[in-house]
Design a binder for these strands. Structure first.
Lengths: 183, 183
DNA sequence: TATAACATGTAACTAGTTACATGATTGG
DNA sequence: CCAATCATGTAACTAGTTACATGTTATA
């Protein structure tokens, strides 16, 4: 699926692999991410398949950049993918839940420590949604008002992230209280 | 990580690969799942590493079953893993969010149709939590009251599933309303 | 009579991660 | 002076999916 994410970003603007990574981290990071190495290998495959083209851009006193541009064939592939509806639920993998599921014989304090640690992580993540993601949306809509529609959808995905974190924190609070009482 | 899930289940009771698949589907399915083929290959690896042993059980008029049992070394590996706290947030991949993110130029009705389709899927999933998962917990605690502690944790993971579905449905309602107004 | 459940496995493939390799510039 | 940023890539590996192969029995 990463290929479609890359095509999606390249449709807005030609970019290098390095820039694509940064853009993803700032925008889709909380629901779709990739390592730098995977981005480079996927771009290579996309070029082989004719969905993008690239040309190197020489730079002074910096390594050359390779700028990727979406092709017509790439735009078509992206459009087809966008029109194809999602018909299955995403299968998430929640490491903490897996551990917790098998933790019935652990000491109360061990479980509580682990839950509290995750609580911290989620609190921090929830904070990030207040600034980082909104900045990204504001910046773009300020310079490109024709992307207003897009910005509404970006905002919706950010909202999802916030709700998810809130839910998670609420569940951790409940679960911590439960373990505290029952164990 | 599947290896630890399998060890976790085998610690309660020796099982075949087929049974492990069924048990997972009914219990950890919504936060950890695996295909039958992956279960078989992972069991093989676990046996090579000495974390489980297996013996074939001949059956009349049915293919032989291969029953896997956790070893001491396997219990140790499981315990070590359980004690190791989760220090990173899970990176989820939400296909719908990825599509939505790039859907700014699609027709209003196309987006709404896709959101409504997913709404249905999540409604159905939310229903499942009311029966299926609770049954599983009730059955086991009725026959094995010494697993009461475990059952509390299983119930917590089920609760997570319910909260997640509720959050998702709420977000879909909001997002459908937003697209309806803004597009 | 067909299909779901029981039962195990391999091969080929796709997706994603970790580690390695290289090297200049800028900011604290 | 050290860490971060800029910048690209390959190799080896782990995890997970899809497709294939085989065959019986119970149930609708």
């Amino acid at each position: 699926m990463l290929k479609y994410a890359l095509l999606g970003f390249l449709k807005y603007e030609s970019k290098t692999g390095y820039e694509l990574k940064q853009t993803m981290d700032k925008s889709t990071g909380h629901f779709w991410h990739a390592k730098q190495s995977q981005i480079y290998t996927t771009l290579k495959k996309l070029e082989e398949d004719g969905l993008v083209t690239s040309h190197p851009e020489p730079q002074e006193s910096r390594p050359d950049r390779r700028v990727y541009t979406i092709t017509e064939s790439g735009e078509k592939a992206l459009q087809e993918w966008l029109l194809q509806p999602v018909t299955q639920l995403d299968t998430t993998k929640q490491l903490l839940l897996l551990k917790l599921f098998f933790s019935g014989k652990l000491a109360k304090e061990t479980i509580l420590t682990q839950l509290r640690l995750l609580h911290n992580l989620h609190e921090r993540q929830a904070e990030l949604y207040k600034t980082e993601s909104t900045d990204f949306i504001k910046e773009i809509t300020a310079s490109q008002p024709e992307l207003k529609q897009d910005a509404h959808l970006w905002e919706a995905t950010r909202r999802f992230g916030r709700l998810h974190e809130k839910m998670y924190i609420r569940w951790l609070d409940e679960t911590i209280a439960m373990v505290d009482e029952q164990f």
